[in-house]
Amino acid sequence: MKLRLMVNGESRETEVREGESLLYVLRERLGLFGSKNACEQGECGSCSVYLDGELVCACLVLAGQAEGSEVVTVEGLSEGERLHPVQEAFLEAGAVQCGFCTPGLIVAAHDLLSRNSEPTEAEVREALAGNLCRCTGYEKILTAVQMAAETTP
């Protein structure tokens, strides 16, 4: 089938099998490699994107279900070369090690701060519970989100 999507503000059209995942479409059909493919079970959050404004795991959304939807991936958060304050904060805090979980965490942190501009540490932990990181021990990620909360307009 032909799939039409708005991706990061651009109208995209691509041929897909209805049963493949939105994550597969983003990475393999549209060349957006920011969203990562890890557990494919909706457990790790590395494929977190916005689907019609809601944070979801793209690995669990079938391409057919996304027809006509608006998708924002991690690539859509920066403005050209200028990184989003959440991305800047992750760099500044050293919240990135292997980097595999980072795009999903950045989108999830972006979602949290758009709803709650001054989250407590407990709120940050709860909001990021669906994003697993096997390197950092999370401490610097928590620091990064608090830094981003202070700098996000």
Binding site: G42, V56, C57
Partner: peptide
């Protein structure tokens, strides 16, 4: 239950 991402779907 679950995570924010899953509750949204």
């Amino acid at each position: 239950g679950a995570s924010g991402q899953l509750r949204n779907l």
